[in-house]
Structures are given as C-alpha cells and as structure tokens.
Nucleic acid binder design. Structure first.
Lengths: 224, 224
DNA sequence: TATTACATGTCGACC
DNA sequence: GGTCGACGTGTAATA
C-alpha cells in the first residue's frame, strides 16, 4: 500500500463527470492497483476512486508538475494533478486473512429455518429459498392446519420488503396446490410504515431477536 | 488525519458482529473522529469502520498492548488491538472544498422532458416533478388523445422503480380530472424482472439512449 | 458473462 | 429522528 498526502486537483470522467479543486488530500494506492482519494472527514467513502483493474500512467508537465492518469477498459478516467507532495509512504501488508461476519440475513434465515416451530405450534418448513418466477421466497412453511405460509426475512424491515413479500403472495396464491398462502414479514427491526403496510395487507409481522434465536431456550416468538 | 499502520486484530459489534484476525492494516482516523480499517486490496471499502460521531478510548493492558475502544450512542462498538505499530503519521488537511458532480438522473429527466414528442406523436409535457401526496411523478404528460401519461425515469430500471410508478398510477387514477392515467417506465437499462413486472401491470417500457437524447437528430423513441 | 439481491450499504433531501 | 430515493452504488452468489 502506498499513501501519498498531497496538495492536488482531481477530475473523474466516466459514469458521470466530477471535479475536485485544489486541496490537501490522502491518495491511497492499494496492492491491486485500486486508488482512492480521501478528505479529512466524511465517513469512509472517498471523494474519488478507481477500482482495479486499471492502469496508472505517471507524467510530468512543463512546470514539473506530476500527473497521474488512471484509466480502465470501461472508458473511465481519473486524472490526479499532484501540485505538492507532503508525504509519500509505502508499506507491504500481505494478503489480509479476511473478515468473518455473523448476523447477516443469510444467518438469520438459517436460524429461523431451524426454529419455524417456535413461530407457531405445528409450523413446519417446506423449504428455504422456495423458487418462483419472480425470485425465491426466503422460507415456505405449512402451519398446523397444513396451510402454506411464506416468510420474508430482512435484517431491517422496510416498505420494500413488504412489497416483495406481497408480490410473492400474489404469485403463490395463483397456485392451486398452495392456495391459500399467508405471509409473515420477519426482521430484526421493522419500520413503522412497513408495519402499517404489512398489516393493511393481512401480513403478520415478526420481530426477530438474534441472540434469542441463537440461544436454544427461546420462548415462542411473538407474532403480531 | 492520522494514519496508523499496525499489526492488529479488530472486532465490531453493532448492526452485526464481525471479526478480523491478526494482520498488518491501515487504520485511518479522520478529523471528525470517524475511523476506518483498510487492507491492501479490495476496492475502497474498508474492512471495518465507525462513522462520526463516536468516542475513542485508548487503553493499555498488562502486556503493554494498546487497545482502542470506539463506541457511539447507537450501541455499536469497535475494538482495535494494536499488537505492533509500524508507522504512525498525522497531517492536518483542513476542510475539503468538496466534489462537483455533473450528469446523472436529473439530466436524463431534463433531456426527456424536452423530447416527450419523440416518445409518441402529439405527446405534450404537462409538468416535471408533478406533485402527489406520495411524492413527485418525474414527468406528467398528455398523449395525442389528451389522456394522461405518467413517466418514471431511472438510470437503471429495476423492480423497485416499477413499484414506485405503480403507486403513482394507483394514486393518479383516483383523480377524476386525470383518469385514465397510463404509465411509461423509462431507463437507460431495464432489468428483465422489472420489464416482466411492468408489462404485467400494463406499464410500457422505454429504453433511453443518453447519446441519442443529447443528439437532436434522434428518431422516434421505441416504446415496447 | 449477466442477472439478482444483500449491504454495518452510504448519502442527501425532505418532512 | 424517520422516510424515501439515488448512487460512478460495491459485492458475492448464481445461472
């Protein structure tokens, strides 16, 4: 990794056009060639960047001013004029062992799939990722009366997720072998508007507690 | 901005749980306190981060090992154990003058608004950003028969955009002065699922060619 | 390769 | 603070 702190101006042209006027910024060049330009504030997103693969071409103009021209094969171009280099530091880091995550949607789905009987007595899982023409339903179950129940799982339950489940229900209810299919919208957090929309459409909401799901003890989950 | 290169392990707990095993990484601390941890590859997204506002607490354990504990008021916690510091560099950068952008959806809307007659003969623009209680419709037009047409414009046409237009159409069709209102879903690129859903709902799809719109010559746009 | 849906999405605008 | 829509979204999995 190479870290250059410099007074610079930057132009990007590609998916849109963008310009950065002269200021001191950090220019980060990673081992794979990707490059990002950071200001001293504003979260982690860089002001400009160019992902790998790309090619970096360095040149010097008449005024001894350094320019980096970064291009890729998608017609994107990043031009960095380095007016004054304040610091230039390189360090080899090797390959990162990588990030282990726990608690993303796939994990929630796995846990809930193993505990559908906790949603209501007699509920059984038919299958995960039940396929339809408009995409897979997270969980398809049958309740104690043998009626089909489609479950959509989100980490954050917003209005889009309710729309998505509604589409699945529309679709599934056209299938004579499944009809009638009811819906459960399950999420760690359900936004008020999503809850209102779900209830308006006869979809039940289920608030998931990750720790509770992980712990075996969990009581019955609370449907409402 | 402070740049620390160190052999470190990191744990994040908050929206999910994540763990980074020991390796050499860059730790970036910006002037606003936000912090990000970068590996030497993998585009611009850091492995872990914590946005401002937060509070950073530094401590030393029995083995003289440095730990940074970063917390915020949303119950997120980032723990960085610094086993060995290879480099520690600070530089004041001042406030960045900021990024100027040019050429996104607003531009597409502008171009299409000026060329609604190219969509079909006799089409006239009623207004851009036609207001409704559930948000503004990108373009409201009337066709050669005087019937209202709502147009939703996207750079990338996905299923959500079709839902959005559907909501507008539901709403507009309750208005006796407008009814019947038909819909056109216009985008530079339309995903297959979005197209299927649109057609299922009687919404026409319109593929926009940015260069063609910009060039005055453009033939009639092709509705399908 | 392209298509899809997730993301600690982030970010801004508006209410 | 919550919702909504755009993003140079990026990214991984899947077909």
């Amino acid at each position: 990794m190479r870290l250059v702190i410099a007074n610079c101006t930057v132009d990007y042209s590609g998916r849109l056009d963008a310009h950065l006027s002269e200021a001191v910024r950090l220019i980060m060049v990673k081992a794979d060639g990707c490059i990002s330009i950071h200001a001293d504030g504003g979260a982690y997103k860089p002001l400009n960047w160019m992902n790998a693969p790309n090619s970096i071409h360095e040149s010097t103009d008449d005024d001894d001013e350094l320019t980096w021209l970064v291009t890729n094969d998608k017609n994107e171009k990043l031009t960095i004029k380095l007016h004054e280099i304040i610091s230039d530091f390189s360090q080899d880091m090797g390959i990162d062992p990588g990030l282990q995550k726990d608690g993303v949607e796939a994990h929630l789905q796995e846990l809930l799939a193993a505990n559908v009987d906790k949603i209501s007595d007699g509920m059984v899982l038919v299958r995960r990722e039940y396929p339809t023409d408009i995409g897979p339903v997270d969980l398809l179950c049958r309740d104690d009366k043998g009626e089909a129940v489609a479950i959509e799982i989100k980490r954050r339950g917003e209005i889009d997720g309710v729309e998505q489940l509604s589409r699945y229900l529309d679709y599934l209810n056209r299938d004579g072998n499944l009809r009638p299919v009811s819906g459960i919208f399950a999420a760690q957090e359900i936004k008020p508007q999503a809850r209102v929309l779900a209830e308006d459409r006869g979809i039940k909401c289920l608030l998931l507690d990750y720790d509770e799901l992980r712990g075996i003890e969990s009581d019955e989950l609370k449907l409402f």
